[in-house]
Nucleic acid binder design. Sequence first.
DNA 1: TCTGGGGTCCTAGGACCC
DNA 2: TCTGGGGTCCTAGGACCC
Length: 248
Amino acid sequence: MFALIDCNSFYASCEKIFRPDLKDRPVVILSNNDGCVIARSSEAKKMGVSMTQPWYQIKDQYLSKGGIVFSSNYEFYADISNRVMNVLSDLCPEIDIYSIDEAFLDLRSFKKNIDLVNFAYDCKRKIREWVGVPVSIGIAPTKTLAKLANKVAKDDPRFDGVVILSEPRVIKHFLRSMPVEKIWGIGKRLTARLENIGVKTAHDLTQIDSRLIGDNFNVVLERTVRELKGQSCITLHDFMEPKKTNNG
DNA sequence: TCTGGGGTCCTAGGACCC
DNA sequence: TCTGGGGTCCTAGGACCC
């Protein structure tokens, strides 16, 4: 099993750590030169601010409604990211850092079976208390499925930030409800091509003949399909920054 | 008239991701 | 007037070599 831990609205959450007065306030972060929006707190998303929206287009209205804005501060975000990753690597020795705000944990590295629900909530609580940012967690037999689980954990408030896919029956049901474009590695172009051949859901994708994929698509999609079927085959760079020590 | 074939290295472009 | 910037991975094609 793999866990994907992803920080919610990462840059905006970082800015809120030391500014308790901003709790429940809309916060957006701008790209270099304040060109466009690159991160939004949930309150800003509710106001209708979209990702990569040009700042000049929304500035007046956003500020007049009480929105808060920051220029990006990547050194600060990298520092918070390191703290999150350190907490995670203490909880699980096998960690693949995928981006500044997310990491996969390989739960197969635990010798004993662990209670996945307890583990997930423990992660969430520790990162919240020790670092100060909220996270969503998806747990599943492959990285691609964990990524999908994570997306649902983040988007559907009923799940309280944690989705665990372990039963095959549950996974099948889950995949039937999942549009292909939500799958990690499937963007606009592939979605259009897949829909042309009648593939609309993640479950549809698992039903295509693998020769068809080989002939008409590429090895990336082939791997994605295998992952959706529960066969783990995506490996990330197994790098992990060494923990800080006294001798540097 | 049917123009060797296989390997390596490099680069550009496509697609996707955060 | 103002619309991110940095990645990975794969593929195809060109150049070169023996």
